[in-house]
Design a protein around this nucleic acid. Sequence first.
DNA 1: GCCGTTTTCGGCCCGACTGTTTTCAGTCG
Length: 574
Amino acid sequence: MKNQEIAKIFYEIAEYLKMDEVAFRPYAYQKAALNLENLEQDVEEIYKKQGLKGLEKISGVGKHIALKIEEYLKKGKIKYYEKLKKKSPVNLGELTAVEGLGPKKIKTLYQKLGIRNVKDLEKAAKSHKIEQLFGFGEKTEKNILESIEFLKKDKGRFLLGEILPVVEEVYGELKNLKQVERIDVVGSLRRMKETIGDIDFLIASKNPQKVMDFFVSLRGIEKVWGKGITKASVRMRQGFDIDVRVVSKKNYGAALQYFTGSKEHNIAVRKIAISKRFKLNEYGLFKGKKMIAGRTEKEVYKALGMDWMPPEIRENQGEVEAALKGKLPNLIAFKDIKGDLHCHSDWDGGENSISEMAQKAMEMGYEYIGISDHTKFLIIERGLNEKELSEQRKEIDKLNEKFKKKNLKFRILHGAETNILKDGSIDIKDQALKKLDYVIAGIHSNFKMSKIEMTKRMIKAMKNPNIDIISHPTGRILKRREEYEIDFDKILRTAKEFKVILEINSSPYRLDLNDRNIRRCKDAGVKMVVSTDAHHKDQMKYIELGIAQARRGWAEKKDIANAYPLNKLLKDFK
DNA sequence: GCCGTTTTCGGCCCGACTGTTTTCAGTCG
């Protein structure tokens, strides 16, 4: 599927146009990119079946952009984009990721200092060439260096949500090969880590050579690092590597266990094997030369006196001990989720109407959806004021009335994602908050406060008797922005005392709370909610990412508020 | 460059914050 690739190019075109101070056109490209990104159908399929007319039906795509999509599908590149790139040959993806750098500053840096990428940027900053530029200064230079340091830490890792669609595609193609008896995603992807270094597949086959030949001929491969009889490694066009390993069926379970990891988990498990005078490797569990387990993962763990455990918790964080004692947690799963409580509608500039969002929620098998649009402080997101909230209520009541008449067991809850202002107050009056079914509060401004001030600010908001949920509690953006400074233990104590629920935000760019904080939350007895923060109905599918992090944090059904049926949930809300 | 219960032109989300340029451009959300 080329949707993401084309979207990425359109985003870059938008940035190039902004560099040249072109008005409005950048936003047209951005909008087209957003809609392509969230499109469920393959844009290539649409083009094959309906041609240019079909492309133009995509929201935000008109005649000219449709032609550019066609050009990419036919020739693999877009002339217009190549021309822009030639004019300013800078690595936009890299440079815009640096905090404080936008198209204008990037343009100046290129024109005055010839800076094309982060490497050039770092060199210039370290030799204090940047602070001398007009419009730049000492602080900007320092911030640039700090931001580069942060980006370096995450280098080479990709977001789980970015990679999953590619994985599904490759998985599907390999699975269809008749020589493939079994195939699994292994490694950190099977463990659903928030960022992924590379993609690993394990395959069972009697004819490894055939599988290898097929694998290295897949579409989208840029370079083959190595190809042997049972092992191959390639670089994909999108910049990450895929490794494939083929084993025979009788070793499959042991290999699955071995390649899933984590390394720390495997070391702990192997120590147990040694203590029982066994040897564990990727081919099986051995007593002397005799293989005593290896066909399935379960068999391997069982032979070691352990229960099988979900991949998400294999991080040597106590799961080995729990598995030995038969005390593994019963992890939350998608089937337990009854509704999504953080969804935006077109009232605040989201893509879909309340009714469309509700429809999607029903399709997902939910009992309820919570509409929680931004409130007035966030002007850019068309935040709602008190009056608009009460108008929105009327629309929601009407829709609920309709569902009742149709005997549908489904309900829309009226919430809001309010803003925690600098002093900890909420941007909506208490009177209006009381009328909502529930209230979310989140920090969307002033991220760089001292730890003490930030903790005070958050706690003040949590003590507001109308606040039920804190959204994206640590404020991080993966690979982009660090968490703000906050005393998380104090936050947990306050959450417990004032019965505030903390959100696990499922956006692929946030995943906030993260796995470790989820575990802390659970251990502190604080309730959580898994939400998507969807600004488009198709983003509701990201719930899987949030659930995966919840599982990594050992969360069970009882820990997750939106695993509760509606009546119990409403009782818990203030 | 897109879009249309003000439809083929004329709009298109805009205020706060930061750092630096002493009056505001650029970035962020």
